[in-house]
Amino acid sequence: MTRSRSTAIANKLAELAAREPTGSAHVEQSPPTVQKAPIVLEIGIGRRSEVARVLVADGHRVVAIDVVDRSVPDAVAFARLDVHDLATSPSPLQALPIAADESSVAVVFGQNLPAELQPATARLAERLDAVAAFTTLGFEDPSPSLRVERRTVGPETLYVTDAPSR
């Protein structure tokens, strides 16, 4: 993905993350603590860290997971986790490399996300009261088990699932 495509996707994710969460997965902060920016959780970051890099450069917080150890930009928190396990975990937020007083995950994102990971990604997003957004491998449609909205972002199609509070 080129820098301009990554920037376009990152800008759309930032827009989705900026929406005020109202669900129970959002951790309320007591005054005078300053509310931290919502988190974008990237599923299966692989070797493609450009979207995460753009988000971080623009001041957003990013947590990335993958089933194998990956090199990520310095400001990106990383955990070796499987989205299937995380989606069924009793406490998915606690499994992520974020402090207990951090604000919520606002967007769960996957770049070139294969169809077999899309339902688990959507379930995880729903459990976190977050929006799920992903691009596909390009030659396949989103999993038929998902209701998605197609959003054109430059030459890419970003698929966004319903989230109860957004």
Rank of each mutant, 00 (worst) to 15 (best):
V40R: 02
S49D: 10
V108P: 05
E102A: 14
H60F: 08
E20A: 12
L81A: 10
R123A: 14
V160W: 01
D74L: 08
V108A: 07
E42T: 13
S91C: 05
E102R: 11
D129Y: 03
A99C: 01
A95R: 14
P38L: 01
V105W: 10
S49W: 10
E156Q: 13
T161V: 11
Q94D: 15
Q111H: 10
T161F: 05
V62Y: 15
P90L: 07
R127W: 05
V67F: 01
H60R: 15
F109M: 03
T121F: 04
V153D: 09
L117W: 07
T135F: 12
S165D: 11
E156R: 08
A10N: 12
T157H: 09
A18M: 08
P144D: 15
P155N: 12
E116W: 12
V76R: 05
H84R: 13
S6Y: 00
S165W: 11
D66N: 07
S145D: 15
E116R: 12
A77H: 07
S24E: 14
R151A: 07
L113R: 06
E126C: 11
A77D: 09
S49E: 09
A52K: 06
G59N: 08
A120K: 03
F109K: 04
R80M: 08
S4W: 03
A37F: 00
I39S: 08
P92G: 02
A99Q: 14
P144T: 10
T2M: 04
A130V: 10
E15V: 05
K36E: 13
P31M: 09
P32C: 04
S89N: 11
E28P: 05
P32A: 09
A132I: 02
V62L: 15
L16W: 06
P142T: 13
T7K: 14
L128A: 12
E50P: 01
A14N: 08
A115Y: 01
G138T: 02
A115S: 13
R151N: 09
T2Q: 07
D85C: 00
P92R: 01
G110P: 03
P92K: 02
R166E: 06
A163E: 13
A75V: 00
L41W: 02
A120Y: 06
I43T: 01
P97R: 02
P142F: 05
G59A: 13
V40H: 02
L158R: 05
P119G: 06
A95P: 01
G154I: 02
V76M: 11
R147S: 15
E102P: 00
A79W: 01
Q118V: 11
A37C: 05
A122S: 14
A87P: 03
R48K: 09
A120V: 04
L96D: 00
T136E: 07
A37W: 00
V27C: 10
F134I: 02
V56T: 14
S89V: 00
G138M: 03
S24Q: 10
T22V: 06
V83T: 03
L137H: 04
R3Q: 15
R53N: 08
L81G: 05
E149M: 09
D101Q: 15
E140A: 12
A10M: 12
P119K: 03
T22N: 13
E102F: 03
A79F: 02
E116P: 07
V56C: 14
A132H: 06
R61Q: 15
I45A: 03
T136A: 06
I43P: 01
T136H: 09
V27R: 14
I65T: 06
S143L: 05
S91V: 01
